[in-house]
Amino acid sequence: MAIRFSRRDREEPEINLIPFIDVLLVVLIFLMLTATFSRYTQLQVRLPEADAEAAQTQAHEIVVAIGADGRYAVAGQVLTTPSVQALTAALQQAAQGQTEPTLVINADAAATHQSVINAMEAARNAGLQRITFATQQPRER
Rank of each mutant, 00 (worst) to 15 (best):
V116N: 08
E61T: 07
T135A: 14
L79K: 02
A119M: 07
L47H: 06
F37L: 07
V23E: 15
E11R: 11
T57G: 05
V64K: 00
A134K: 03
E12A: 13
E11S: 06
A94V: 01
T80G: 11
A110W: 11
T132Y: 11
L33M: 13
T57C: 02
E100G: 02
V78R: 12
Q137A: 12
N118Y: 06
A73V: 10
V23T: 14
A75C: 09
I66A: 08
A86C: 03
A68L: 00
Q77A: 14
T99L: 13
M1N: 10
A110H: 14
V27D: 07
A134I: 05
E140D: 12
A109I: 00
A109R: 09
Q85S: 09
T112R: 13
T112F: 03
P13F: 01
E100Q: 09
M32L: 15
T57Y: 06
A122R: 01
Q58S: 14
E61A: 12
Q44C: 04
R10Q: 10
F30C: 15
A68H: 00
D9Q: 14
Y40N: 01
T80M: 11
A109D: 09
L128Q: 02
G76P: 12
N125A: 15
L25Q: 06
E53C: 04
A126D: 03
E14R: 13
I15E: 05
R71N: 13
L103W: 09
P48T: 00
L91I: 06
E61P: 13
T132W: 12
Q114C: 07
Q96V: 04
R124L: 09
Q44D: 13
P82A: 11
Q85T: 06
T135L: 08
D108F: 00
Q114P: 15
F37P: 00
P138A: 02
I21D: 13
Q137N: 03
L91G: 14
Q136I: 09
V84L: 02
R4N: 10
A122Y: 04
L33F: 14
R7S: 08
Q93W: 00
R71S: 15
A126S: 05
A35W: 04
G97Q: 02
A75K: 00
A90V: 01
S38M: 01
R141G: 03
L103D: 05
A55K: 06
A90G: 10
A111V: 05
G67F: 11
G70K: 14
F30M: 14
T132D: 14
F133E: 07
A111M: 10
E61N: 10
V116H: 04
A134L: 08
A126I: 03
E100D: 10
A134G: 08
Q44R: 06
A122F: 07
A55Q: 05
I66K: 02
V84S: 05
P82G: 05
L31Y: 02
I21K: 03
G127D: 03
R130P: 15
Q93R: 09
V84N: 03
E12I: 05
A35F: 02
E14V: 12
E121K: 13
E121Y: 03
T132H: 09
A134P: 09
L25C: 11
I21V: 12
S83G: 10
R71G: 13
Q77W: 03
S38D: 04
A52D: 04
L24K: 11
A52L: 15
T34Q: 09
